Computed example of a mutant assay.
Amino acid sequence: MIENIYLALDFPTWEEANDFIEWNEFHGIPVKVGMELYYREGPRLIESLKENGHAIFLDLKLHDIPTTVMKAMKNIAGLGVDMVNVHALGGSDMIRRAKEGLMAGSPTNHEPKLIAVTIMTSMDNAAMNDELKIQGNLQNNVIHFADFARENGADGVVCSVHEANRIKDVCGASFLTVTPGIRLQESADDDQKRIATPAFARENGADILVAGRTITNSRNPKSAYENVQKEWLYGVE
């Protein structure tokens, strides 16, 4: 098991997610829990995963008024998750209050890392310009949001692998880059625009990988997970 490779549990129910874990002997590996699963199962899901030794990235992408986000984060911190995220577009006060909530609600010595979402990896430059009306180059905007999040207390950002090295240059080596859109070479792209292989991620400044469909849609998920680990450690032969 590699501690910085998170498996995305993109399943509609805990029963299906747990069956997948059991069938593939994924006991205790780091996992990402998103909105679909958490909104159905709630805190009991997190409790079950923690009991089984999983590190957890709770991927809820909070984006609301600062006080509401602060109170939500205080409750989330009490669950004992390892990472949780907000949208950087929520603004400086919201990010600061999110951090405040995590600090207030965390058990001793276990404050979750606060991760900010920059530009969704499902978006490309045209969509950012035309739909969001955010002008300029996509990568430059990602770097701006990353530095903005760091200044307001975030511990890292969700970004594509393609921006990770530049974020490190601007925000420092200790600022975390969490990179979804990880695919083995034989996998389909699906709805992610800015994807990369594990080997490319390692070479380009990613700290934490989030891998989902490249594993969960594989005919042999255990082998796919092992291949993600091998590519991360040794590159592509």
Rank of each mutant, 00 (worst) to 15 (best):
L45A: 10
V69L: 05
Y6G: 04
C171R: 00
T121R: 09
A72F: 07
P66N: 04
E36L: 14
I143M: 07
R183K: 07
N140W: 05
Q185E: 13
A224T: 05
H54S: 08
A77E: 06
D147E: 13
D82N: 15
E36C: 11
R166F: 08
R44C: 11
E163Y: 06
G172K: 01
Y39C: 14
N75I: 14
E100Y: 00
M83S: 11
A196E: 10
A199Q: 12
G53D: 09
T68V: 11
I115V: 14
M35E: 10
I46Y: 04
V178A: 03
M35N: 12
A17Y: 01
N217D: 10
Q192R: 03
E163M: 04
N24S: 12
N227F: 05
D10I: 02
K61Q: 13
R96V: 02
D124V: 11
R97Y: 06
A149K: 03
L102R: 01
V142E: 03
D147V: 06
A199C: 12
N4A: 08
N217K: 13
V170P: 01
I119F: 10
H162I: 06
A126C: 08
V157Q: 08
M123S: 06
D124H: 12
A116I: 01
N125H: 11
L138R: 00
E16K: 14
L60I: 10
I182A: 03
A104F: 00
V228M: 11
